[in-house]
Simulated assay, not measured.
Amino acid sequence: MAEASTSPSGAQRVSAWVHGRVQGVGFRWWTRSRALELGLVGYAANHADGRVHVVAEGPRGDLDVLVAALRSGDTPGRVDLVVEDFAPARGDHATFVER
């Protein structure tokens, strides 16, 4: 993916679509825990097609760590593919939640 510019605060936003067996296995809770450990804000949400959409904001290095964790093989369930896109942070989240 192309390198996104940063917001004035230095924060960036990642939107990651996680494909695989990632619903009903504690994946959103696990993702929230990793994001909070990294100090990120955003959400993890189930979608009707079986994917989980992860949106997180924070420093680019921490976002890269989160995306690597999503691909690590240490997640609940089974991750087959993660498709991410980086953009400037919007600043519209106060914490990281499960939706």
Rank of each mutant, 00 (worst) to 15 (best):
N46A: 00
N46D: 02
S9I: 11
Q23R: 09
G39L: 00
G39A: 00
P88R: 11
A44N: 01
T95M: 11
G50P: 01
V25N: 02
W30M: 04
D92W: 06
W29T: 11
S33Q: 14
Q23C: 07
P76E: 05
A35H: 01
V41K: 13
A87T: 15
R71C: 09
T31R: 01
P8C: 07
L38I: 03
L63P: 12
D62Y: 05
G42W: 00
D74R: 14
N46E: 02
P59C: 06
G61R: 12
S5A: 13
R99N: 08
E84N: 09
S7T: 11
E37T: 03
A2Q: 06
R60Q: 07
G10S: 08
A56C: 07
E3I: 04
A68L: 10
R51N: 03
T75E: 11
Y43E: 14
A69G: 07
T6P: 05
H53W: 08
L63I: 03
F96T: 14
P76L: 09
A4S: 13
D80G: 11
R71W: 03
G39M: 00
E37F: 03
H47N: 06
A2M: 04
P88W: 11
A2L: 04
P8F: 12
G73Q: 06
S9M: 09
A35K: 02
W29R: 09
S7V: 09
G24K: 06
A11Y: 10
E57K: 01
G50F: 05
Q12F: 09
V79M: 08
S7A: 15
S33R: 12
V82C: 12
V97T: 15
E37C: 02
H53P: 00
L81C: 09
T95C: 13
W17E: 10
Q12R: 11
E84Y: 04
F86R: 13
T95Q: 15
G24N: 05
R34V: 12
V25P: 08
A69C: 08
A56W: 08
A45G: 12
H19V: 06
V52N: 06
A89K: 13
V55Y: 09
G61T: 12
D92M: 03
F27W: 00
A89L: 14
R32L: 15
A11H: 14
G10Y: 09
E98K: 11
W17F: 08
M1P: 13
S5G: 14
D64T: 10
G26I: 05
V18F: 05
A4K: 00
S15Q: 14
E3V: 10
V14E: 12
S9G: 07
H47L: 14
G58N: 00
E57I: 00
F86P: 04
Y43P: 01
A89W: 11
N46K: 05
F96I: 07
R99E: 13
R28H: 00
T6G: 12
V67I: 15
V22E: 05
A69D: 15
E37I: 00
S7F: 10
Q23E: 07
A56Y: 06
W30N: 05
L36F: 02
P76I: 12
A45W: 02
G24C: 02
S5T: 12
L66Y: 13
N46W: 01
G20C: 08
E98A: 15
G58D: 00
V83W: 10
A68K: 13
G39C: 02
G20K: 06
T95R: 15
